[in-house]
Design a protein around this nucleic acid. Structure first.
Length: 501
RNA sequence: GCCCCCAUCGUCUAGCCCGGUCAGGACGCUGCCCUUUCAAGGCGGUAACACGGGUUCGAAUCCCGUUGGGGGUACCA
C-alpha cells in the first residue's frame, strides 16, 4: 500500500482527520441490541457506557432494536430488553424503535445508491462464490468479491432482472484504505485489500445489517457510535456507506469484550450471562451498574464503590481499557454485599419481599418478625436470595438440628435441665427485652457454675438450628416469648433423647 | 489461512503517552484484633510487569520479534 494514508480516492474525501478534541456534548448516541433472547452482560455494559456518556454530556440516548432478519420480531423479547435496561438503571430518551419497521427506508437508500452508481446488482450465487472463498483461503489471501458483476452492461442487467433472475445489491467499495480515530483505541486503519464489495440488499430484497444500521444512524442523526469490539471490522464498511449516503460521520468507539472465567467469550456454560439471571440471583441493580462500569474502566483514583451520579461525573472514554476483561462473579457478590449492607431497612424490606415470597414466606412478609429478621440478617447475606433463605428458620418451628453440634453441647453436664430452667426463668420475665434476657441467662450460668457460652450455643441451636447467626439475644427478642418457649422445649426434648441413646 | 487488536498479582485494575519511588489499590485466599457464634469492621500477609532482543547511565514504561489470547473473515447481527 503506497497511496500513503489520508486523502484518497474516497468519493467525498476521506474520513475526517483524527479529532483529538475531547468529547463534548451534547451527543446523540444509541444502543442497538438484537433481540436474540436476553440482554447479555456485554450488551448491558455497552448500554451503561452509553448511558454514562449521555448523562454526562447531555443529548439523547436512542434505543433501537436490531431485529432485521429475525424470523419474527418477538415483541416479548423487545419488552424483555426494555425491562432489563430499566432495571439496570439505563435511561433512554427515544425509542425503542424497531429496525424491522424501517425496512422500506433501508431499501429506498439502497435504490438511491443504485441510482448514483454507488451500488450494483450482483447475480452471483453463494454456490458460485464459496469455492472461490476456499481457494483464496488456501492461497493465504483475503477473499474479496471478484467484482464479476461490477461492470455488467446496463442492458444485460435489465434483461436478467426482467427475466426474474435473483440479484443481490452490492456496495461499490472505493479502492482506498479507511481510517478513523477510535474514541477508545486511537487510530485505526484498514487497508483497501481488506475491504469488500459487501451486500446491501439480499437477493430476496431484504436489507443486510450494514445497510440498516447506517441508514438508521443517519436518519436518527446519531453522532456517537459506542459499541462492542466485534464491530471494529465493520466500521470501514459503515464509514464508506455514510459517505456514499452524503451523511456526516459519527464518532466511533469500540469497547473491549467481556470474557468468562475461562478467558473465552462469556457463555452460559460458565455461569450467569444475562441481566435477568443476575436479577434473579438477588443482585441489586445499583451494584450491577457499578460493577459493570468498572469492568474495563476505572476512575484512576482508586475509587470502586460509586453511585451512578459519581460514575457519570468521573466517566471518560479515554480511560477505557482496550484489553478484554474477565468477568469475576466473586467480586460482583462482594460489591453487591457492600450495597446490601448499606440499604435502609424499609428499602431492603421492599426489595427482599419478592424473594421471600418466592421462598414460600409470603404469609409472613408483612409481620414485625419479618422486619426484625431482615434487620438481623442484613449483614449476613450478600444477595437478596441468600437473605431470603436465611429468613426461613425464623418462620419454621420444625427445625432440623445439627446432631454433631448437639452432641458436643451435651458435654455440659445436665444441659437439658439447664435449658428447662432457663426457659422457666425467661417465661417469668416481666419485660421481653434483650438486656433482661441476657442478664437472666448469665445469672443462671453463674449460679450453676457454667460458662455463659455453654448455654448460649445450645440456645442458638434451639432457636435457629444453626451454629452461626446474629447476636443471640437479638434473636431471642425478635422471636418472642411464645415461640422461644416452644423451641427451647422442643430442643430440650431432642437433647434428652439424644443423651439417653 | 488472512486482516485487525490486546498483554501488570488467580481476577478487576493504577502506573505507560512525558523512561529513574519497596510496581499502588480492590476481589479472592490467609494471619491477628474485636466477639457468645457467623457476618460486618480494623490491622497485617500472599501474589504480577508473558518471553527474547534492542535503545538508554537507567525500561513495566520506547522499538522489533516470539508466544499466548481475543475479534473479524457471510446474501448473521
Amino acid at each position: 500500500m503506497t497511496a500513503g494514508q489520508g486523502r484518497a480516492s474516497g468519493p467525498r474525501g476521506d474520513a475526517p482527520p483524527s479529532e483529538q478534541t475531547p468529547l463534548s456534548g451534547p451527543v446523540r448516541l444509541r444502543f442497538a441490541p438484537s433481540p436474540t433472547g436476553y440482554l447479555h452482560v456485554g450488551g448491558a455494559r455497552t448500554a451503561i457506557y452509553n448511558d454514562l456518556l449521555r448523562q454526562s454530556l447531555g443529548g439523547a440516548f436512542v434505543l433501537r432494536i436490531e431485529d432485521t432478519d429475525r424470523v419474527r420480531s418477538d415483541e416479548a423479547m423487545t419488552r424483555q430488553i426494555e425491562e432489563a435496561l430499566r432495571w439496570s438503571g439505563v435511561a433512554w430518551d427515544e425509542g425503542p424503535f424497531l429496525q424491522s419497521e424501517r425496512l422500506p427506508r433501508h431499501v429506498a437508500a439502497a435504490e438511491r445508491l443504485l441510482a448514483a452508481d454507488r451500488a450494483y446488482y450482483c447475480f452471483c450465487t453463494t454456490e458460485q462464490l464459496d469455492p472461490l472463498r476456499r481457494e483464496a483461503e488456501q492461497q493465504g489471501r483475503t477473499f474479496r468479491y471478484p467484482r464479476t458483476c461490477a461492470h455488467l452492461p446496463a442492458g444485460e442487467v435489465a434483461r436478467r432482472r426482467a427475466a426474474g433472475e435473483p440479484a443481490a445489491v452490492r456496495f461499490r467499495m472505493p479502492d482506498a484504505p479507511v481510517s478513523w480515530h477510535d474514541l477508545v483505541r486511537g487510530e485505526v486503519e484498514f487497508p483497501a485489500e481488506a475491504l469488500d464489495d459487501f451486500v446491501l440488499l439480499r437477493s430476496d430484497g431484504t436489507p443486510t445489517y450494514h445497510l440498516s444500521v447506517v441508514v438508521d444512524d443517519v436518519e436518527m442523526r446519531i453522532d456517537l457510535v459506542l459499541r462492542g469490539e466485534d464491530h471494529v471490522s465493520n466500521t470501514p464498511k459503515h464509514i464508506r456507506l455514510f459517505e456514499a449516503l452524503d451523511a456526516s460521520l459519527p464518532r466511533f468507539g469500540h469497547l473491549p469484550l467481556i470474557l468468562g472465567p475461562d478467558k473465552r467469550r462469556l457463555s452460559k456454560r460458565t455461569g450467569a450471562t444475562s441481566v435477568e439471571e443476575f436479577r434473579a440471583q438477588g443482585i441489586l441493580p445499583e451494584a450491577f451498574y457499578n460493577f459493570l462500569a468498572l469492568l474495563g474502566w476505572s476512575p484512576g483514583d482508586g475509587r470502586e464503590l460509586m453511585s451512578r451520579d459519581e460514575l457519570i461525573a468521573a466517566f471518560s472514554l479515554d480511560r477505557v481499557s482496550n484489553a478484554a476483561a474477565v468477568f469475576d462473579p466473586e467480586k460482583l457478590l462482594w460489591m453487591n454485599g457492600q450495597y446490601l449492607w448499606k440499604l435502609p431497612l424499609p428499602d431492603l424490606l421492599a426489595r427482599v419481599k419478592p424473594f421471600a415470597e418466592a421462598a414460600g414466606l409470603g404469609a409472613h412478609v408483612d409481620t414485625p418478625l419479618f422486619a426484625a429478621a431482615v434487620g438481623l440478617q442484613q449483614l449476613r447475606a450478600r444477595t437478596l436470595v441468600e437473605l431470603a433463605e436465611q429468613l426461613q428458620p425464623y418462620f419454621t418451628s420444625e427445625l432440623a438440628y445439627d446432631e454433631a453440634a448437639s452432641r458436643k453441647y451435651l458435654g455440659t453436664a445436665g444441659l437439658p435441665a439447664l435449658l428447662g430452667e432457663l426457659a422457666a426463668r425467661w417465661a417469668a420475665l416481666d419485660e421481653w427485652k434483650k438486656e433482661r434476657l441476657e442478664e437472666s441467662l448469665r445469672a443462671l450460668a453463674t449460679e450453676r457454675g457454667v460458662k455463659a457460652a455453654a448455654l448460649i450455643h445450645p440456645v442458638r441451636m434451639a432457636l435457629s438450628a444453626t451454629t452461626a447467626g446474629p447476636p443471640l439475644f437479638d434473636l431471642v427478642a425478635a422471636l418472642g416469648r411464645e415461640e422461644t418457649a416452644q423451641r427451647l422445649e422442643r430442643y430440650r426434648r431432642s437433647l434428652a433423647a439424644l443423651s439417653a441413646q
